[in-house]
Design a binder for these strands. Structure first.
Lengths: 219, 219
DNA sequence: GTCTATACACAGATAGAC
DNA sequence: GTCTATCTGTGTATAGAC
């Protein structure tokens, strides 16, 4: 057990470094995370860290790349199953909420460097952009499937932007109220209203809770 | 002109330090902004900076406090004028959008330290919380006025959270697409739908653009 | 209040034995 | 691949003349 095949000793160390580095950078941000902190937290000396990744920047790029593939693997297919819009939307929102709960670090990593745009390396900027583009594409495709928007790409784009900004805003809210969750209920109402506002047929709009007791939507 | 009354020489220096420090911290984040950078950018030696503010932390607290009063001064009264909901909502969104455009630094400053929650000083944490609480209170009161929610505080809270998260998400979006703006159009549709969903009377819901050609909202 | 000069710690990064 | 030891720059912060 302790005698792992010597070949992947390095790979295991590499993973350990990425684990602790990702954790620290998500908590403190890129600039406030030092190599010595990572070294102390994972037990390996600084020179080993530099042997695996050539620089602090390289660590960040690797950490973010790993977070991206992990997140994309956790997100389901873009084709959302379900008979009607309401059903597919509920499936989509459940997936988003669950991924959001289970991957608390991914997005914070984006923010961790986000502040540093100015002095970030080209590699880091590229990796950040890949992460973000992957999220945008996933949201657009999923919502396109939910609302059957193959012929209305601009609507799918707007819905995706809306959803992602709400998610990002919730990440921000979290460092004031650590137990803040992505409120899928209001988001559901908003997405249905937005789609409907653009003339997309959304079915009967059942309304999960609070049975709309007012005089709204009458002429 | 160059001979300002010696009494406020200090005050002017203080302001200059806060100006450049706020600018740098909003751009690079707290951790990545050094005293030397501030000194080089504003022309005063580091020791003068330390004379005015006792520590780097003190600079941040002062910068954020100043940003808070400036933002609150820029935001209009909580009582939103207007005859009906649609009118008041448009006024409110126009104000939010405009404040958002004119105060690009304020919110980024919050995020700048936000990452550092763990090792932040008590004073900094308190100041961050004051800034955030002021924003939440303003949004809640304004939306309460827009939708006449004096007897439905929980709805006002939800609308305020929704609005602020969208705004925070847009700040985040901005460091990928620097020209991203707060999309008040979709936000308007969403807020109306949310209020209506909770049984709040919202009038006839005119719909500014895209005249809702679908079959939505029918039973 | 502003300056020059400096103390001390720690940052990122490397050398070279093992 | 991992270790000890170290180089060099810069960080926060201070002393003390003016």
């Amino acid at each position: 057990m302790t005698e792992a095949p010597a070949l992947d000793r390095g790979a295991r160390s590499r993973d350990a470094i990425l684990d602790t580095a990702g954790d620290l950078m998500a908590r403190h941000g890129y600039a406030a995370t030092s190599i010595s902190m990572i070294s102390a937290a994972c037990g390996l000396p600084v020179s080993s860290i530099y042997w695996h990744f050539r620089s602090k920047d390289g660590i960040y790029v690797a950490v973010l790349g790993r977070a991206r593939t992990a997140l994309l693997a956790a997100l389901p297919q873009a084709e959302v199953p379900g008979a009607d819009v309401a059903q597919r939307l509920d499936t989509f929102l459940a997936e988003v909420g669950s991924a959001f709960r289970r991957q608390p670090r991914g997005v914070k990593l984006l923010l961790g460097l986000g502040m540093v745009q100015q002095d970030a390396s080209a590699a880091a900027l590229a990796e950040v952009r890949r992460y973000r583009d992957a999220l945008v594409a996933w949201a657009r495709d999923s919502l396109s499937s939910v609302f059957a928007l193959r012929d209305r790409p601009e609507v799918a784009d707007e819905l995706a932007r809306f959803t992602l900004r709400m998610a990002a805003g919730t990440v921000v809210a979290r460092w004031f109220e650590p137990d803040a969750v992505l409120e899928t209920g209001p988001l559901r109402v908003a997405l249905l209203a937005l789609a409907s506002h653009h003339g997309v047929p959304v079915g009967h709009v059942p309304g999960r809770d609070a049975p709309s007791r007012g005089v709204a939507n009458r002429e």
